[in-house]
């Protein structure tokens, strides 16, 4: 009897060991750092050293100082605009892809996704040179007669950040929209056609509503990637293009206030989690399963 009793015990010990080992790496390198980071947001800095006493001072400063909240809102609006522009460009492109047959469809999809593989820093640099005073954009606009002379409208300001982030993030909008469009059963479209709906009616009442989950995922992706980016604004934003990511980053560099930076990160994380949850909530596919 004792023999049968010890085997489950040994097995249970073994099972516990496996569980502990499995959790060790993710907990030590993900959960613990995030917990310490959260803890830091309640500390403060005095004369360049970090004071380990808990206080809500950083959060109070974030909400009361006239600098931070406006930048925070402006950044959110900026990233929402990036998401909106990305979707306006990506939706027609993704729709066009689904009208193509077989091989062409995926070849073109790959073609639109390949730019993601290109070095991120190099892309920012190239976009900056395109947008610059002597860049191709100004050359084209002057050549077309839209501008009288080259303009500095597109470099070292908020416009530059908006345009650069949009160019960088379009592929992230194309993929989810394409997938949701592709999942729409053809029978629904044919039924709509049979019942006498015009192409526009079919699009507005069948295709568009059924593709909205893809649009929601795309918006959430692009927004999260845009708001977390601190290098692009740093590089193309100049002095006037100040975003939340840059302020956060500067707390760990020139401003040297890690605890305050941690509190700003918590604010950023709240917005990101909200965006992911919204994307998740509306990104579910309903009614396409036939």
């Amino acid at each position: 009897m004792s023999g049968t009793g010890t085997i489950p015990l040994a097995e249970r010990r073994w099972s516990l060991l496996v569980t502990v080992l499995a959790f060790a790496l993710p907990v030590v390198f993900v959960l613990v750092p995030l917990a310490i980071f959260l803890g830091y947001s309640f500390f403060s800095v005095d004369q360049g050293t970090i004071v380990h006493t808990l206080s809500l001072g950083n959060y109070v400063r974030f909400f009361t100082d006239p600098i931070f909240l406006p930048v925070f809102w402006n950044t959110i609006v900026l990233c929402l605009s990036v998401a909106a522009i990305c979707i306006l460009l990506a939706y027609p492109a993704a729709y066009f892809l689904t009208t193509l047959k077989g091989r062409w469809r995926y070849a073109l999809l790959m073609l639109l996704l390949v730019p993601l593989l290109m070095s991120y820093v190099i892309k920012i640099y190239a976009i900056r040179s395109i947008l610059g005073l002597n860049g191709f954009l100004n050359k084209a606009l002057v050549g077309l007669g839209i501008l009288q002379e080259p303009s500095t409208l597109f470099v070292f300001n908020m416009n530059a950040i908006l345009l650069t982030l949009t160019l960088l993030l379009i592929p992230f909008a194309i993929l989810p929209i394409f997938l949701s469009l592709e999942r729409i059963p053809q029978v629904l479209l044919r039924a709509s056609d049979d019942l006498g709906a015009s192409g526009l009616q079919t699009f507005l009442r069948i295709t568009l509503p059924l593709s909205l989950p893809g649009v929601a995922s795309a918006a959430s992706f692009v927004f999260v990637l845009a708001i977390g980016d601190f290098l692009t604004p740093q590089m193309v934003g100049g002095i006037s293009g100040f975003t939340f990511g840059r302020i956060l980053y500067s707390q760990f560099g020139t401003a040297y206030n890690w605890p305050f930076g941690a509190a700003l990160s918590v604010a950023l994380a709240v917005v990101v989690i909200a965006a992911i949850l919204v994307g998740e909530r509306f990104g579910r596919n309903r009614g396409t399963a036939i």
């Binding site: 990637l225 980016d229 941690a262 994380a269």
Partner: peptide, 8 residues
């Protein structure tokens, strides 16, 4: 966002 993972 990578800035949060990186800073943590």
């Amino acid at each position: 966002p990578p800035i949060i993972s990186g800073l943590a």
